[in-house]
Design a protein around this nucleic acid. Structure first.
Lengths: 166, 166
DNA sequence: TTGTACTTTCAGGAAGTTTTGAAAAAATCG
DNA sequence: CGATTTTTTCAAAACTTCCTGAAAGTACAA
């Protein structure tokens, strides 16, 4: 396989993977493109490589910056902005965990908290509250585990899990 | 808050959470409904509670059974089928990990393998292959870690992570 | 200040996904 | 075996999400 085919395949696969993770296809592809690029790319480069519009490129690059997965690179004497991807996979995953935890897990825990206070003494209410509390317990544990994971550095992570696996 | 409001809120929140996880809203809501129900429900019950069509209910229940998150319950003397959800959160998460690993991580590792064999000696190709190999290394580690997690039981999981957190 | 190079915004259209509902198939019963 | 109940299928409709491209906005240099 040559480089052009390889790049193409990687962009397609990474984009498809993104779709099943609540990330839109284009955003995942831009990230992929920047990851395999040896140097920073401008918005125009991204538009051309992925055959997408300026608006689309701009919005998704912005979103990637929000997630901490892509950075601006300003060059002296160049008005144009260039972009580079975070390439350390551990940092990529860590940022995704941080963002999704904040956007999804934490609000859910808050809702579960409110729901634990549902009143009533019939079987259905009891079952409901019991189930909610179970889910909340599990979610809170997951939450602290993720906090620990976030604080830990890559080597620690790999080391610990390698021991677990062996 | 009373039971009806609580149920409604839980169904909404769980459904919304599903959307950001590549699970469709209705599938997540059916799962939520069955989790908080003290007894098995029929397709008609699900249709009525969630105000959805027969076809929609049937397709999503089917998908949930595929994922191992819902089971059929047959009753002697009843022609109708009833459904119950897996309520042990650890098992729920474990099943989701198993399915997504199979559907997403494993195919991606296969693609990355193919991409490691891209040929060429310019800087761009080298960078490409290097990045792919990094991603593959990380993915393979994640893969084995998940295998370990799947084999482990709930207590072990909680125990180990609780130690990590302390 | 004005011209230029670039970035951001957003309404409307395109593409993709989910839902419906009716018809077909399957299962069960007398 | 019908008759009846329940489940499954699937084309079309409804809905949602994403993308385009043109216009507006911003920053900078001269």
């Amino acid at each position: 396989m040559n480089l052009t085919e390889g790049k193409e395949k990687f962009l397609q696969s990474w984009g498809a993977l993104g779709s099943s993770w609540g990330v839109n296809r284009t955003m995942a592809q831009i990230h992929a493109l920047l990851m395999i690029s040896p140097h920073a790319l401008s918005a125009d480069d991204v538009m051309e490589e992925l055959k997408i519009s300026r608006g689309n490129a701009n919005m998704n690059i912005r979103a990637l910056i929000d997630w901490g997965l892509v950075f601006k690179e300003l060059r002296a004497g160049e008005r144009k902005e260039f972009f580079v991807a975070e390439k350390d996979m551990w940092k990529v995953v860590k940022n995704i965990i941080i963002q999704r935890k904040k956007r999804e897990l934490e609000p859910m825990i808050k809702v579960l908290d409110e729901l634990s206070s549902v009143e009533g003494d019939d079987a259905e209410t009891e079952e409901f509250v019991k189930t909610i509390k179970d889910i909340k317990l599990f979610s809170s544990k997951a939450d602290s585990t993720l906090d620990t994971l976030i604080k830990a550095d890559s080597n620690w992570f790999v080391g610990t899990f390698m021991k677990m696996i062996k």
